[in-house]
Design a protein around this nucleic acid. Sequence first.
DNA 1: TTTAACTGTTAGATTAGTCTAACTTTATTA
DNA 2: TAATAAAGTTAGACTAATCTAACAGTTAAA
Lengths: 230, 230
Amino acid sequence: MLSFTEENYLKTLVQLTVFSEGVEEVGVNSLAKNLSVKPATVSDMLRKLKEKSLVNYKKYGKISLTEEGKLAGMMVVRRHRLWETFLYQKLDFSWDEVHELAEELEHVYSSKLINGLDKFLEFPAFDPHGDAIPNAKGEIALPFRKTLSEISIGESCRIVAVKDNSTDFLQYADKIGLKIQDVITIVAKEDFDALTTILIRNEEFVVSPKFTENIFVVCRLCGKAKGCSC
Amino acid sequence: MLSFTEENYLKTLVQLTVFSEGVEEVGVNSLAKNLSVKPATVSDMLRKLKEKSLVNYKKYGKISLTEEGKLAGMMVVRRHRLWETFLYQKLDFSWDEVHELAEELEHVYSSKLINGLDKFLEFPAFDPHGDAIPNAKGEIALPFRKTLSEISIGESCRIVAVKDNSTDFLQYADKIGLKIQDVITIVAKEDFDALTTILIRNEEFVVSPKFTENIFVVCRLCGKAKGCSC
DNA sequence: TTTAACTGTTAGATTAGTCTAACTTTATTA
DNA sequence: TAATAAAGTTAGACTAATCTAACAGTTAAA
């Protein structure tokens, strides 16, 4: 049985490795920052997680998840995203309100509960932010996508997901009426101040990197991110 | 903000006082037994709850809830019973499975979540065990009822609730097809071994006090428990 | 290649909630 | 009412998760 805290370590490790393309290992400082604890605390906890065969790690080395740790972490993500979907779809919560509550609900462990919820929601593939929900085996289809900041002037793309890490951002996105599946066109990019002008539903907005880096998109025509030549 | 543990103390105090007719105060031992901790632990915690003005209590004296403590405890009960109703109605959990999970879910605090759940379930008045669900103000209509063990030979009554404290009992109740609103008739009572023969849906069962003391009933005809002369 | 900066570890303290063992107060009963 | 039993309290210890402060190891730069 994993504690609330251990689950948070595993979930964060999943986010920093499995969900970060090309990153397989992280350092103590980075993990500490993401968990809002001090590195000393992480050092201690790593000993415990290693004892339980959940992480690969040795003193002064890098941290990675074992298969077992990865599965456990994936299940926390699954619970989190299913609860977010429930709150959004059934209880009329908004985009930016679901995350905080899901942080608590995700730690209520019961396969019967989670699989029941999954069925009740008719096995959703994505949460309200557009992120894929791992299935009961912890499997996930890694999305094939870019961030909005990677799109060039004049190109159009379709929004497939938004990062759910900032309430500010989500509220702004909500305010300008942004929705998953919306089409965005890049009107202009200012190099010197990194502002981008985007067109959405015939309205123009000037946005900062904070905005463009938090939106995931695919090609408007073929649905691909990389290797598209439309 | 109340901790998980503090909430459990308040919830248990509500159960032992508000929901136990004629009992307004409890002792340290009784509270300890109901929380499955040692009296020493309760002594310590009481100091903390008193500090926060949640209980009335002085050394070697009896324990009771303040208005504030009662409200907080009632809200835990409200959350518990709403989650039980959700699990039973929406996720197809059975009678005896809901309690344990609700013990965890009840501690996720958010008015928006609970009031949203209440609305989603269309403001249910009773949980799957037939117990009244406190409203958003913590108010509850105290049920007017007897236990099955108080009914005399030859009398019939209608089941309005069952205590949800024993999985054994709930499973047995489920097995013989017991439902809220069922009518039961007392066929015979043996004084020397305290067994009772009951008739339910034309089937006879011999049951022990554990069974008859865990079922709440009202008069089959007028719906009243006390003061009925049908 | 030596030093500075960064990264990570260890030791010792703290807090919440629990325990056991010994003690104190209150209630009961002979 | 004195003795005994029951109920309740206190002191001291433990665990998990955290912290700070001091130390150790690694990396990068001058």
